[in-house]
Design a protein around this nucleic acid. Structure first.
Lengths: 187, 187
DNA sequence: AACTTTGTACAGTTTTTTCTGTACGAACTT
DNA sequence: AAGTTCGTACAGAAAAAACTGTACAAAGTT
């Protein structure tokens, strides 16, 4: 697994691999929560245990998959800030390693993915709210429709309130305040 | 959309639908973050604006999809606690309505989905850690392998620390303490 | 300048997921 | 008891996603 195998026997290698494989399996599977494929999750696991940054070719050979897949997998992980591109003198190839700070990984995920969703939802809700208000003020709007609109408006208002809260929660992730609220443990 | 259309004109209906549709579109799309299909997201949006609990048949007719799909979609949303089954006297059909408390929806999601992932990851990490310790104590383990194992162990220890933190964060969602830490707004 | 090596775009294939129609058991009605 | 109605299991069709091989541009080497 990216290790210089001349220094250890096949048997020793097997033992270490067995342990790693089980962890990779579980971690990879649960990474579907982050919206990544099982295979991308495995790729992450592979990089997690790699003792040095890996190239696309190395990953492909370890995963028994095409370099193209490694390329797209790595890009997905890069987009999620779960993997970093690493520069190494003398190598023409791109090298990648996992972001080992999982606290960072988690908060980045929220700061990016969830923020995007919250913003777009808020925007849609506000546009709708504005349009409803416009209709409610219009004399052409019948009493009956006005009642319907008011109900919709109230629902939207509640959703808006929730999203504002979520936005603030994401703020605490982004600026690290979450770690004051829910402290990391003493190491 | 589940409304008694005798009370309003086609034109009025159109206007309301146009507003709703745009919100449903966006909310549905962003629900992919919760790991649900776009169409299930739309179903949720439909129920969100419904002015009364809906039956599978009504959903199917609104969504122009089979009742079977509604059945599975609703079950997905039920599993996520995003939709509730509602009892209504005199109706033999099952009725469903969205959970309008989105704070609850969000925290439930974490309490369920993320907790499951955290627990299974923690278990896997701890098993691996135990096995590594066992090997490290064994006299058969070469110096070289021991070094590799120690590196793995340290990585696992860090991940374990992160998951314990995440577990505590999820606790705050589950018991509502998160709303003391990041308060809801005054309504 | 010709030749390698590297990463990725893209088209086509394979695999997976989603969706539908049929069938059937459960529960209610007559 | 026969007849409805309802929800869902299941098999197959349709759609979407993942994966691969080829091709090529960019950048380095000779």
């Amino acid at each position: 697994m990216g290790l210089d195998q001349t220094q250890w026997s096949e048997k020793e290698h097997e033992v270490v691999q067995r342990i790693r494989k089980r962890v990779i399996e579980v971690v990879g599977r649960n990474m579907e929560l982050y919206g990544v494929t099982l295979s991308t999750g495995h790729l992450y696991g592979l990089l997690f245990f790699a003792d040095k940054p890996m190239t696309l070719d190395e990953m492909g050979s370890e995963m028994q998959m095409s370099k193209t897949s490694m390329s797209t997998g790595v890009r997905t992980l890069l987009d999620l800030n779960m993997v970093n591109k690493v520069w190494e003198k003398g190598s023409r190839k791109d090298l990648y390693e996992v972001e080992y700070d999982w606290y960072q990984t988690f908060t980045d995920y929220f700061a990016n993915e969830w923020r995007r969703a919250v913003e777009s939802n808020l925007q849609a809700l506000r546009r709708a709210m504005k349009e409803i208000d416009r209709l409610l003020e219009s004399p052409d709007t019948s009493e009956f429709v006005a009642d319907v609109l008011k109900k919709d408006r109230e629902k939207i208002r509640q959703a808006d309130s929730y999203y504002r809260w979520l936005d603030r929660l994401i703020d605490t992730m982004e600026d690290g305040a979450i770690f004051d609220l829910v402290p990391r443990e003493a190491e």
